[in-house]
Amino acid sequence: MIIRILLIVGLAATAWLVFLRRKRLPVHIVMVTGLLVTASAAVVFPDLTQAVAEFVGVGRGSDLVTYLSIVAVMFVLVHYYTKFVEQQEKITQLTRELAILRAELELAGRLPVPAPDAQHAPDAPDAPDAKDAKDAQDAKDARDAAKPAAAS
């Protein structure tokens, strides 16, 4: 059957990807190999799943596979959500440290305080009104005035 070939190819591709990442721990490789071998066995000998399903009390083999898949997907989702939250905490810590460090360096005179319009991103959502334009011009004048001093 064509479906068997497709499934086996898919599993083999997964195995290939797993073993490409050589930095994985041996226990990961053993677990993934075990899973892939079990899955291949189920593809080649579908009656196996039927036997296991009857043993654990599920009517059909394909139902058993569905239930197990759903649990596996939920596990993976929670795992990655946890990772995601941890990642965000790290970004927060990094951003915080950077913000405080910069301000401390600026206060100590070790970093120049940004020019008034340096943080005006070009994609600022609201169009500058007349006052903003004047402020920007003032700031530019101030910087131009400061330039020769900085160059010397």
């Binding site: 008034p116 319009d117 340096a118 943080q119 005006h120 994609d123 600022a124 959502p125 609201d126 700031a139």
Partner: peptide, 13 residues
């Protein structure tokens, strides 16, 4: 300044 896209930082300074 929590990553503003406007001139919040300069105005606060």
């Amino acid at each position: 300044d929590d990553g503003s896209r406007d001139n919040t930082a300069a105005e606060a300074r």
